[in-house]
Nucleic acid binder design. Structure first.
Lengths: 201, 201
DNA sequence: GTTCTTATGGCACTCACTGCCACATTTTGG
DNA sequence: CCAAAATGTGGCAGTGAGTGCCATAAGAAC
């Protein structure tokens, strides 16, 4: 790795950190890109070479960890049962959350306060779910995801989503593992009532 | 209803229609708000009184139908089992889709082509899921949704989501009802593999 | 018909974001 | 170690979304 890349990596981190600082201090909307650039001692034009949008300044953090998690799923050997592989995925998310508590809480808070950030998060979450669908399909031997693959991915994502929400609402005090396990149990035991086809309960 | 409101309703529809026209013809990004305003023969400033953002010009259509669907859920008597009430919700979405085929397909297409639109859609979808969670919680006798309520809402949304995707991919040729019923069946029979708590499959 | 209310749209402005270009720094190759 | 090529930096000017303000016009109320 050359000197150039090292410097750029540093700059990138510096920008993201300063952005996070200013956002949490003054709020996302009341912070301009110009201010962030000034704080990081770069030109606004340069900032935009590292981060394509203002929102990406926060989102990239989450994006990194999400793609690490899906990577973990991809690394599961093909003979591991799907349910177990998906648990590894959940596990990976849990790991990043417990080791980034404060950050996750702050980001979640910002998301709920700022519609544009919220939308971006919803977007990357959806795309993440798509990636998982693809991998589930691949494991099932198909090229593109079908209803079953998508449903498996969606339920896994739903388990993570509801657990994280519950965890955030507890202010980070609850145990993520307990929450996901309880959610999974609710699904397995059928305690969560699925609507029945043809309108019969 | 006064003349004033009638005119405004007309203007609102005119703007939305012209916007949809221009978007489908030239693409979302290559259409400016100014052009839409000109096509609808109003000032840009007026357009923004009807639609807060450029994206909302497309999204409002979906938003309307989604809130109609959740309204349908709310209208279900409290003694109707939750699973049946949720089926009514699904049913409502199916109804709007089959009676707006072309529009839904076009909107979906635009969404996949335009990141900002996509993000907005993900956002309102999430908020919709939250509304459903609230109603599920209320039916369960709690003030705010817990893990179970959120999970029930999320799975219902997931069923709709994966079905719509499959339907869109079929070019609108598949039967929505068949798809949702199949998805529900997959969940009920446990054919979709849920990860097991504690890492055991 | 006068008055009160409210929609309209023009103007000026902020801010996110982009293309272009000159400049600086790092890398490469002799 | 130095010249040349490659690449990151940042300024400037410009586009387009979105907002506050205000004068004006049209509908509603009496």
């Amino acid at each position: 790795m050359g000197l150039r890349e090292i410097k750029m990596e540093r700059t990138r981190h510096l920008i993201a950190d300063k952005a996070f600082e200013l956002f949490t201090e003054h709020g996302f909307d009341r912070t301009t890109v110009e201010q962030i650039a000034a704080a990081a001692e770069v030109g606004p034009r340069t900032l935009y070479r590292y981060f394509p949008t203002k929102e990406s300044l926060i989102i990239s953090f989450v994006e990194t960890h999400l793609s690490a998690a899906v990577q973990r799923l991809r690394e599961q050997p093909d003979d591991v049962p799907l349910s177990e592989a998906l648990y590894a995925l959940i596990d990976s998310v849990i790991a990043t959350i417990v080791s980034n508590e404060a950050r996750v809480l702050a980001v979640y808070d910002m998301s709920t306060c700022t519609p544009s950030v919220n939308a971006q998060f919803s977007g990357i979450w959806d795309r993440w779910c798509d990636e998982i669908s693809d991998e589930v399909a691949r494991r099932g031997g198909s090229r593109s995801p079908d209803l079953t693959a998508r449903l498996a991915a969606s339920t896994a994502c739903a388990v993570i989503d509801v657990s994280v929400r519950e965890w955030v609402e507890s202010g980070g005090k609850a145990s993520m593992r307990t929450l996901t396990d309880r959610a999974l149990e609710l699904l397995r035991t059928g305690e969560v009532p699925f609507p029945a086809p043809a309108g019969r309960a």
